[in-house]
């Protein structure tokens, strides 16, 4: 009886702790979202109350008069193309490393792995000169190249791990069936690692979407700015219109949050993929 009571008490304590934590996590995001629907005077006067009406003015201002939609488009292009390139190249390298024995296999694998440990930010100066030389400064293509190269090691690492788990008898069987090496890869093996491709895709897409550092240095014209970077100039312009600022943040957060809520399992698996052996 005594221990049961104690266990109950512990459960309650745990729930209170986790509940408080959940509130601390959610409330700021909630406040950010509802403040986007408020006018300046509401934000100052009644900061914690719900907006008096569901008023989309702030969002309309952003949509019609700022470059934020443009930033959104640029971020989508950069993230989309980078991830497509990453998954293509990552799969190619990982497939060769995981499914074929050849001299130098381990060396090449280590080469990719060592890329995991190089913080590319610190090479920003040579990168800047290099991109300038290639005419890739102030261009989305430049960002795509950097992101692809930067995330390639992690992608290769994740996909090699998955590809190694596939039984070699499947390959043999397809070989007996007369399929070429390319066909075995595309028709037999790749469909079997589609979950891994999703994981690797999320793992790389989220940081690319959120990145702020590389565009800060490589992109100058407003028309090529990405969302995270564009927000800084947007904050400069609207520094006194709080409602619009909150609405901008909400709008910027919306795409990732929406996908996260639909696919939370895959997101969690994806983003922790590099850290879990």
């Amino acid at each position: 009886m005594q221990t049961k009571k104690k266990a109950n008490f512990n459960t309650w304590l745990m729930q209170i702790f986790l509940g408080c934590n959940a509130v601390i996590m959610l409330y700021p995001i909630f406040m950010m979202a509802i403040s986007g629907f408020k006018t300046n005077s509401e934000i100052f006067g009644k900061p914690f109350s719900l907006p008096s009406s569901l008023n989309f003015d702030n969002f309309l201002v952003i949509w019609n008069t700022t470059d934020v939609p443009r930033y959104l488009l640029n971020s989508t292009i950069v993230t989309g193309l980078s991830v497509v390139l990453l998954l293509t190249m990552g799969t190619m390298a990982a497939y060769a490393l995981a499914r074929y024995k050849f001299r130098g296999n381990i060396m090449i694998y280590l080469f990719f792995l060592s890329g995991l440990m190089l913080p590319l930010r610190l090479a920003i100066i040579p990168l800047f000169i290099q991109l300038k030389y290639l005419g890739l400064i102030d261009s989305l293509l430049g960002l795509i190249c950097i992101y692809t190269a930067m995330s390639l090691p992690a992608t290769v690492f994740i996909l090699t791990g998955f590809l190694k788990t596939l039984p070699s008898e499947l390959e043999d069987s397809a070989r007996m069936d007369g399929a070429s090496e390319a066909r075995i890869m595309v028709q037999i093996m790749l469909p079997l690692i589609s979950p891994a491709l999703v994981i690797a895709g999320i793992y790389t897409a989220v940081p690319i979407w959120n990145d702020f550092f590389f565009p800060l240095i490589f992109i100058q014209s407003p028309e090529w700015k990405t969302l995270a970077q564009g927000l800084t100039s947007f904050f400069g312009e609207y520094s006194i219109n709080y409602g619009v600022l909150y609405a901008g943040l909400t709008l910027a957060a919306l795409p990732v949050v929406t996908i996260f809520i639909i696919q939370s399992n895959r997101f969690i698996a994806g983003m922790t993929a590099g850290a879990i052996k």
């Binding site: 986790l18 934590n21 959940a22 996590m25 959610l26 995001i29 989220v206 979407w209 959120n210 990145d211 702020f212 969302l227 995270a228 970077q229 927000l231 800084t232 904050f235 600022l245 943040l249 910027a252 957060a253 990732v256 949050v257 996260f260 809520i261 939370s264 997101f267 969690i268 983003m271």
Partner: peptide
């Protein structure tokens, strides 16, 4: 709880910072 704790992680540092 799991989803809520992870929610801020997916957001850009820029959004969080501002």
């Amino acid at each position: 709880y799991q989803v809520v704790i992870f929610l801020p992680v997916i957001l850009s540092t820029v959004i969080i910072g501002f």
